[in-house]
Design a protein around this nucleic acid. Structure first.
Lengths: 245, 245
DNA sequence: ACCTGAACACCGTTCAAGT
DNA sequence: ACCTGAACACCGTTCAAGT
């Protein structure tokens, strides 16, 4: 299955093959030897295009974050800053859904992918244009956190029982949960019964993502309005008292 | 430096040594051979107390999450549900600050640490007692996400230049940033000038954490009030129209 | 029961050598 | 310049053997 090309290898081709390999077989399958094999080449050849494994992983992150740029470029601008930021985050999310290994990799790396700075920049610019101060914009970037890159730190893991819930197994687990964690069990049951198609699983992660996003944006908009009101009130007070500097 | 004990090894001791080793030398230093060496034993001895490396890593997570339970147990209950949840998240955060490798490890594992369920349970119970429906409680757990375990997905990485910012280097970086990402640069500068002690770094991660937390909690409280108002209005409408079921 | 030593199949990486 | 083969120091893990 090795792709044999007579064209010489390039860093781009190595990284593209790395992303494809991670998509297909998971990040653990991306070894120097394994990736080289996919490219019809020996492991040591990769060192002519990348300094080592660490650079390869950084390159994979950079490639994926770069895809966000392409995705965001297709967006139409929105009048409201919140709608604009919302669309950017959702665009990033569509990219991450194509590369489910990427959030974990990004989280485990210490360095910020350089391409991410450009993405944050456009988001901050949108917010400043929308009336947020740089201080609030700073806090907003922290608050949005990884959502700007299209993922949340999933505490409830991506379902290992992919593609559906075994109703019988779910029943068993519910029974077991009921005694240990009654509120969680009640919640799970309440949510299960409200679903049209229980085989899809009872956590609609897309809906959760959007709910959280709207929650944060709503809160930031209120903070923004407060800030504007306070500034106006202070300005009025300063003017009416005739204070100078 | 190997700790030689004549007492036989136990799983608890192995895990405690693993946590200590990760605290001291990082997660990468936790290898079967390395950990065994710290315990004054051969690598293969560990297999008598743990099935393998994967179980070791799961055990490390479980140990750390277990510490959250101990920390939460010292809390005094708060009247307001938001204050209560807030204290629980901050307690979890103090545990994670002791084990900076833990969030990355938790994020990279697919399974939810069993001890975390108990933690989520008490948080959900607090919220339900505070008036949230199970549905909203479900969404709240998702929204709080990893904050319930005391960390956020840090996009701006934990500062590698630990313990302060070199002002000269910072100036250089600012100059470089200014052309590429002007809004970010302006923000960084605005934040730097407002600081009492710039050597502490210009991102107060504790303040950011609390701001984000309060933002989410404030939004959830509004959603809670909306939900309560809607339910009351629906009830009133149903009663006044004499509708039954 | 608990621990050991040798061995196996992998990994990232160095180095000298090929064309 | 790009690629190779052998080798090195590691890793998790199996197995047969010790007490």
């Amino acid at each position: 299955m090795a792709v044999r090309t007579r064209q010489p290898l390039t860093q781009r081709k190595v990284l593209a093959a790395g992303v494809a390999l991670a998509d297909a077989d998971g990040l653990a399958a991306v070894t120097m030897r394994g990736l080289a094999g996919k490219l019809g080449v020996e492991a040591m050849s990769l060192y002519h295009h990348l300094p080592g494994k660490d650079a390869l992983l950084d390159g994979l992150v950079e490639t994926v974050v770069g895809e966000i740029g392409a995705e965001v470029a297709t967006l139409e601008p929105a009048a409201d800053w919140r709608e604009d930021v919302r669309r950017r985050c959702l665009a990033a999310r569509t990219v991450m859904l194509r590369h489910p290994w990427a959030p974990g990799l990004i989280g485990s790396r210490s360095a910020v992918p350089p391409a991410a700075y450009l993405h944050f920049e456009t988001i901050l610019a949108t917010m400043v244009r929308g009336g947020l101060s740089y201080h609030l914009g700073h806090r907003a970037l922290h608050a949005l956190g990884s959502m700007a890159l299209g993922f949340v730190q999933e505490v409830f893991s991506p379902d290992p029982t992919e593609g559906g819930v075994d109703p019988e197994l779910a029943e068993e687990q519910l029974a077991e949960m009921a005694s240990l964690v009654p509120h969680l069990a009640a919640m799970a049951e309440a949510e299960l019964h409200g679903l049209d198609d229980p085989t899809l699983g009872w956590c609609d992660s897309q809906a959760e993502f959007e709910f959280t996003l709207d929650l944060l944006l709503g809160g930031l908009e209120r903070a923004r309005a407060d800030e504007a009101r306070t500034a106006t009130a202070q300005g009025r007070a300063r003017r009416s008292s005739g204070a100078r500097r």
